[in-house]
């Protein structure tokens, strides 16, 4: 674990690109895993994927 903890600080120039990647990543994952629409289109399309990835479904 020593190598993992080698660089505890993040240079300021790296904050925004990394944060943008995290926001985009979480938006994609949570949107696909959690959104429900009135007609169930999204749910039905994502159904097998959600069940197999252990997202709460139905």
């Amino acid at each position: 674990m020593k190598t993992l903890a080698a660089s505890p600080t993040i240079s300021t120039a790296k904050i925004l690109p990394g944060l943008s990647a995290i926001v985009l990543g979480l938006t994609i994952v949570l949107g696909l895993g959690f959104l429900q629409d009135a007609n169930n289109y999204l749910h039905n399309a994502a159904h097998d994927g959600r069940h197999s990835a252990a997202f709460p479904c139905h």
């Binding site: 993040i10 990394g18 994609i28 696909l32 097998d48 994927g49």
Partner: peptide, 25 residues
């Protein structure tokens, strides 16, 4: 649709891994 779901969630998860590694050099 399952392939699309897996590819897109893979993209999202990979962004999180990528950002973590980028921050920690």
């Amino acid at each position: 649709f399952t392939l699309l779901f897996n590819g897109l969630t893979g993209f999202g998860f990979a962004l999180l891994i990528g950002a973590a590694m980028y921050w920690r050099d």
